[in-house]
C-alpha cells in the first residue's frame, strides 16, 4: 500500500511516495509558480510577495507616509515658505513698478521741459525772423532807391547822348543832302546841258535817301 505526500517547497513540487518501510522521493514539476523572491534574488529590496495583494491595492504604510509627508509639506508651504517667497516677489515687483512710475513721471517732466524750451526757441526764431525781414526790407528799399537814382542818371545821360547823336545825324544828313543835291544837279547839268529844277533834284534826292 502506497501513499503520496505532496510538498510545495519554494518553486518545486515534491512528492513522497511512502510505502511500508521505504520512501521514494520524486521531484515533480519544477517552477510551478514564480515567486517574487526567486526573481529578484538576494540583496534586492523587492518585496517577496505573491500575487495576493494585487498590483493596484493601496498599501496602508505607503498611504500613511505619502499623506503625512504631503500634509507636512503643504502646511509648511502654506504658512512659512510660500508667504516668504511671495512677499519677496511682491516687494520686488512693487519696487519695479514704482521705479517704472517714477521713470514715467520723470520722462513726462523732461517732455514738458523740452516743450517749453521748444516754445521759447520758436518765439526767438520768430523774433529773429522778424528782424531779419525788417532789415531785408530796409535794404531792399535802399537798393531800389539807389537803383532808381542810378537809372535816372543813366537815362539822363543816354537822352543827352541820343539828342547829341540825333543832332549830329541831322546835321550830317543835311550836309549829305546838300552835297547829293549839288552833285546830282551838276551831274544832270553835265548830262543834259541844262540845270534841272531845284525842286526835281530835291525830290529825287529825298526819295533816294528815304530808301
Amino acid at each position: 500500500m502506497h501513499s503520496a505526500v505532496v510538498h510545495l517547497q519554494g518553486s518545486s513540487l515534491q512528492v513522497h511516495l511512502v510505502s511500508e518501510g521505504e520512501a521514494t522521493t520524486t521531484t515533480v514539476a519544477e517552477e510551478t509558480t514564480v515567486t517574487g523572491e526567486e526573481l529578484v534574488g538576494e540583496g534586492e529590496t523587492h518585496a517577496a510577495v505573491s500575487k495576493d495583494p494585487g498590483p493596484i491595492v493601496p498599501e496602508v504604510k505607503e498611504l500613511a507616509w505619502g499623506a503625512g509627508s504631503f500634509i507636512v509639506f503643504a502646511l509648511l508651504m502654506r504658512f512659512v515658505l510660500f508667504p516668504k517667497v511671495k512677499k519677496g516677489m511682491d516687494a520686488r515687483y512693487n519696487s519695479i513698478r514704482s521705479a517704472h512710475e517714477s521713470a514715467d513721471t520723470e520722462r513726462a517732466d523732461a517732455r514738458a521741459e523740452v516743450a517749453a524750451y521748444e516754445a521759447q526757441l520758436a518765439a526767438i526764431k520768430a523774433e529773429s525772423a522778424k528782424v531779419v525781414e525788417a532789415a531785408r526790407a530796409t535794404l531792399e528799399s535802399e537798393r531800389q532807391a539807389k537803383l532808381a537814382e542810378v537809372n535816372a542818371g543813366i537815362a539822363e545821360r543816354r537822352a543827352a547822348a541820343t539828342a547829341q547823336a540825333e543832332a549830329a545825324r541831322t546835321a550830317a544828313r543835311d550836309q549829305i543832302h546838300a552835297a547829293v543835291s549839288d552833285v546830282a544837279g551838276r551831274a544832270g547839268e553835265l548830262a543834259t546841258g541844262r540845270r534841272p529844277a531845284a525842286g526835281v533834284v530835291e525830290r529825287v534826292v529825298n526819295e533816294v535817301m528815304a530808301r
Partner: peptide, 15 residues
C-alpha cells in the same frame, strides 16, 4: 494507485 490519482489531480490543477 492512490498516488497516481494524487499526481494526476496535481497535473490537472496545473493545466
Amino acid at each position: 494507485m492512490e498516488a497516481f490519482s494524487h499526481l494526476i489531480a496535481a497535473f490537472d490543477q496545473e493545466q
